[in-house]
Nucleic acid binder design. Structure first.
Length: 331
DNA sequence: TTTAATGGCGCG
DNA sequence: AAAGCGCGCCATTAAA
């Protein structure tokens, strides 16, 4: 048995079956089946049944007071988890199409949570890398491995990417080791080197833990509070979980604030300019609009500017924009 | 038929 | 003792 579920039963999740697939043929078949069954059961079978008879469209609900970090949540159906990571999944995404005479325009923030971390921590090295427009995972790899950015290998960049994401989530050396398939001591070494190179980030992490412990809450960029329940729990595991949530909350929560400001700015602009383009989806760091052909160039130009102008941070904001006949093409 | 718990997995 | 944040929804199982 490689892993247990919270209730103590043997786990058969993807991580476990992936490892078993190295020694046996069956686990891979189960994983393939599960992947296809997920797509069929959640999307292919369900979404066509949810088309509204009046409009001929699928309409999601956006829950504004559900996620503790201030994100929106989408339900009935959830349109914030439409597949994108596999070729089969993207065929489902491609089913979201613009009407005749229109196109879909999608814009998403680049590395928004890491940029917010750079802003909140005021770390000089991280801010410099973003200001220079560097590939942030490559830049991190160069720092951690002590080589020139141009000399970073694909594996070193992959390691740095896992480290960068792990930081946002409060990952430990244990988790990093498991994710990278390396010894825990080696993982701890990478973390130590990261914090030595980005001392502002180390300070920010520690200050966030202290703030959560002393005040019982942490705040976003715009002062919205998120309560850190369990932060003083006598149960060490609960306390550690609360600390990870408190580390993540300012970044995820500030990103949520930013895109909401962008949505408000967008609504005002569309109104002022008398444009027929419509905002139809928000997916945490992405906005999707349905745009008449004649408005395409204006929207494509202005949308990323509005998103990047949602706040003045210590680092530049970047939004990538795409256009297409369907959501997969636009993404 | 509905509700709840569980394990799992789609997304950012 | 656990080990990576935030969601919603699926199938399965058991019980109301």
């Amino acid at each position: 048995m490689l892993k247990k579920t919270p209730s103590g039963a043997p786990s058969t999740d993807e991580e476990v079956l992936d490892r078993l697939a190295l020694d046996y043929p069956l686990p891979r078949l189960i994983l393939d089946y599960r992947g296809l069954a997920k797509l069929k059961g959640t999307y292919t079978d369900k979404l066509p049944r949810m088309v509204d008879a009046k409009t001929g469209r699928v309409h999601t609900r956006y829950l504004q007071a559900t996620a503790v970090t201030g994100r929106l949540a989408s339900s009935d159906p959830n349109l914030q988890n439409i597949p994108v990571r596999t070729a089969e999944g993207r065929r489902i995404r491609a089913c979201f199409v613009a009407p005749p005479g229109h196109a879909l325009v999608s814009a998403d923030y680049s590395q928004i949570e890491l940029r917010i971390m750079a802003h909140l921590s005021r770390d000089a090295g991280l801010a410099r890398a973003f200001a220079a427009g560097e590939d942030i995972h490559r830049a991190t790899a160069a720092e951690v491995f002590g080589v020139e950015p141009a000399a970073v290998t694909a594996e070193q960049r992959r390691y740095a990417k896992v480290i960068n994401f792990g930081l946002i989530y409060g990952m430990s050396a244990f988790g990093l080791a498991r994710e990278l398939g390396i010894e825990r001591a080696a993982a701890q070494g990478f973390i130590d080197r990261y914090f030595a190179r980005y001392p502002g980030v180390a300070r920010f992490m520690e200050e966030t833990r202290e703030t959560a412990r002393e005040r019982g809450y942490v705040e976003t960029l715009f002062g919205r509070r998120m309560w850190a329940t369990d932060i003083r729990s006598g149960n060490a595991a609960r306390r550690a979980g609360a600390e990870r949530a408190a580390i993540n909350a300012p970044m995820q929560g500030s990103a949520a604030d930013l895109i909401k400001r962008a949505m408000i700015a967008l609504a005002r602009w569309l109104d002022e300019e008398r444009l027929a383009a419509k905002l139809i989806l928000q997916v945490h760091d992405e906005l999707v609009l349905e745009v008449p052909e004649r408005e395409l160039e204006r929207v494509r130009g202005r949308l990323p500017e509005l998103m990047c102008g949602a706040a003045e941070l210590a680092v530049p904001l970047v939004a990538d924009v795409g256009v297409g006949a369907n959501w997969d093409e636009a993404h």
